[in-house]
Design a protein around this nucleic acid. Sequence first.
DNA 1: CTTCGGCACTAAACCGCTCTAGTTGCGGGA
DNA 2: TCCCGCAACTAGAGCGGTTTAGTGCCGAAG
Lengths: 346, 346
Amino acid sequence: MGRPTIADIAQRVGVSKGAVSFALNGRPGVSEATRARILEVAREMNWRPHSAARALGGARAEAVGLVIARPASTLGVEPFFAQLLSGLQARLSEQQVAMHLLVVEDSAAEIEVYREWTSAHRVDGFILVDPKVRDPRFAALEELDVPAVVLGGPGGHGSLASVWADDREAMLSVVDYLAALGHRRIAHVAGLPGLRHTQRRMRALRDSVKRLGLVDAVSVPTDFSDAEGAAATRTLLSRGRRPTAIVYDSDVMALAGLGVAMEMGVRVPDELSVVAFDDSVLTRVTHPSITSLSRDTFALGGQVAELMLEVIADPAARRDVKTATPRLVVRRSTAPPALGKDTKAV
Amino acid sequence: MGRPTIADIAQRVGVSKGAVSFALNGRPGVSEATRARILEVAREMNWRPHSAARALGGARAEAVGLVIARPASTLGVEPFFAQLLSGLQARLSEQQVAMHLLVVEDSAAEIEVYREWTSAHRVDGFILVDPKVRDPRFAALEELDVPAVVLGGPGGHGSLASVWADDREAMLSVVDYLAALGHRRIAHVAGLPGLRHTQRRMRALRDSVKRLGLVDAVSVPTDFSDAEGAAATRTLLSRGRRPTAIVYDSDVMALAGLGVAMEMGVRVPDELSVVAFDDSVLTRVTHPSITSLSRDTFALGGQVAELMLEVIADPAARRDVKTATPRLVVRRSTAPPALGKDTKAV
DNA sequence: CTTCGGCACTAAACCGCTCTAGTTGCGGGA
DNA sequence: TCCCGCAACTAGAGCGGTTTAGTGCCGAAG
């Protein structure tokens, strides 16, 4: 005999399948004595529910989907994803909810997967990352009418629930700090220009020019890779009037930038201050350690998972959760700018 | 109306459910003309199979399970996992196979999940990581008689298929290289002592003592965290006769060790050579860059996925795949030892 | 002309579970 | 005593597919 089914249990106990179903699901309809017998026998026979059978009846799949449209080879580079995943897992597994994970080529493929998993009842909802400037996924998910949580915002993602951090405020806090140290030439090695949060950060920097009397404030978009981060740094440091501070959109790029600076003989933090827009072991263990905007990515994952579970439980309860704005953790990579020919102390 | 079912299609075309099923699955039993009509209508109605319904009938789940028993918070730290995941994904998504991912507390919970997902037909097979010295999971999976691939080996994992790298050979190549440079005091900051591959590496180092005439060769187990890696380094460097070379079982720990060395004023590579037993961006971008054993984790994931698909297709085809032994990539963190009071050049 | 084989297709069972409608038996109120 | 209501339970439909056992029809062989 294969795995035992409720019919087997029913036969053994001498009741109907229905009674067994009631008993196993803690539903009224059976006496306490019968329920106890049934549970006893079920345990004895090592019975386990068949999720497919349940799902057929319209029950939950007890899984959420995470589809990522990035080249799979770059996934491993960013500590961010793994940490987010960990955080998601930590919260989801409390409720015995699994994650269905898939890496695809592009948004079109991603949407197709949403369609399939939804109609196949494979998952109860989706977590959407990397919101882009004109993002077709929001409309697709709304049309499918499936629970979803967007990581990123605020706004622009239609009626979907979201968890977001204030990227603007975060960028401002970095720029304010650097300006207070005396920096007037601040560069920004940004991430993918198509991403919303990249745009927000770039705008925040631009908006600071007048307010803080910056002399130069340029954002250089990259693909988040260490290679492009290094290249951008090399370009910036080769200019006639080079920046006295660089803000990097990820810790890996900051580390790469640090390497380039050393290689070019630019001393950090004396001649160049470096700030990473993301924190992880990397920023802590390097020398000099890197001043970073620290957000608890693990906790972020937990919040996303929490909201996901809420939305699944009650699809009407869509809401936006603002996470704590990342705090600036000052380490050894930032200092007042050297008094050079084109840098004035305030 | 909800999602269209084959019954809807059948009605619309004017045939039976069976005919539709045959047509949609490319099975004989319908004429080409009818098949074309059915496919046409199915496309028109935007029909998609309901995986739960299929699973009930005993079909594939088109998903493989990966259950990881580690504290979720440490998952993000290691680039290894994310890269492995990427590699797995890259290969699996070619076949439209998804991954079911879950992070649990311990092996017991892991086994329970294997039981559940197996009897629920949630996945077609499992990928098992971190094989331990006495590992109850092998027996459990064999008993469940479900396709599985173990990442690690060789041997000791019963009849399960496996993908493994030769950790012993890899360690020997590192030690040989260091000995050739003139090092005689070599320390090893190892990973979790319960893991098979940790044991293998430790044994390989021990076995080299006589062969290479080493004066000292100690392995210090850790939990893979940067904190313990740093602590172990601190201890090692504080000893009277300190090692002239340290091999780290992960890149993160190597980086942490590098930091400790700098902080203690021990120059790398002049006074201390550092080797990482795992390669990633980290080892490339730091200064000095770290000599590492490089294995292509992304490709490794691909191999595991490949074998998994094979075993699912034909459970009898269990086999062991040996991956390329990691190559030593020499960078700036290794050099001949300084001629100190207790170090002799050869 | 009959018979057989095979093609195209139908009807219905089946997978494991949930859930609704219905049945039985029993105690209590009028 | 009769009827009602309720608790405890059963029977069976239904979820969306797959699959098997037919059924009717046509052409070819005997």
